[in-house]
Amino acid sequence: MIALVGALGVVAVGTGLLVFTVNSMARATFLLLASFVAVAVLLIAFGLGYLGTVIVLMMTIEMMIMAVFMVMLMMNPAGLMPMTMVHNRWGSWAIALVVFGLLAAGAWLVPFPTTGRAAQDPTVALGDALMGPQMLTMMTLGLALLATIVGTVAVAVSRR
């Protein structure tokens, strides 16, 4: 298990780093997707089948929607000419290191439960947690996201 987690972690971090070294949007998209899929496989290996599968599903759709935004907004939408994946080099280094530090500190400092037993069905437990105490948050988030999608499309469409 430790070997599997280690290998998948290396794949996730490695492909994540490669995203910034390639010179094509499509390759960057593929590498980012590969990184997320490695994390998803990790979760499935932990027995969280629903969460892992949903990550594959959501991240694939997300990458493809990113490609739609590429077409809409980028100077070089087709990406057939090589381009660099980085800009504002030092600023982004600073932001990345600070965020990494915060997340890593969080992962080490949060008191994870070490005793007690796992939920009978992790999918049901997740649903209970999201739609029980956090229902208001999830409902607000869902509505806000839907309103954003519809609003963005309404603004972008030029049809009279």
Binding site: L33, Y50, T53, V54, V56, L57, T60, I61, M64
Partner: peptide, 12 residues
């Protein structure tokens, strides 16, 4: 959910 996730890979 698994079926859905695999079938979405066709987009990519």
């Amino acid at each position: 959910v698994w079926f859905n996730a695999m079938e979405v890979l066709a987009w990519f």
